[in-house]
């Protein structure tokens, strides 16, 4: 599965997340998926893959206000900021 370079990215407030998974199918480029990581409350957390478009769909469907959405000025800038987790 090939991914387009990221044109946007998100910050996830992991402490607030309740692991409901609503963001996963809501993401148009399908770059959100559930990880094996859990927050302090024990909820499984989503993680972001390359290819985010910054569309903000995740923000719209997140009941716990966990997402902050950024549009990158230069495509793929996300890769340079974080690298592989």
């Amino acid at each position: 599965m090939s991914r387009a370079p990221s044109r946007g990215t998100v910050v996830i407030d992991a402490a607030r997340c309740k692991g409901c998974e609503l963001c996963i199918p809501a993401c148009p480029p399908r770059v959100l998926r559930m990880s094996a990581r859990r927050n302090a409350s024990g909820y499984l957390l989503p993680e972001l893959l390359e290819g985010c478009t910054g569309c903000g769909a995740c923000l719209l469907v997140c009941p716990d206000f966990c997402f902050e959405v950024y549009q990158l000025d230069a495509p793929d800038a996300a890769k340079t900021t974080g690298g592989i987790a």
């Binding site: 990215t9 993680e47 903000g56 950024y70 890769k79």
Partner: peptide
Amino acid sequence: LRVVPTDAPPSGACRRKG
């Protein structure tokens, strides 16, 4: 697949959308 960190805003030039 490469996982993008989501614990802090990007350091490069960007615009907060929401």
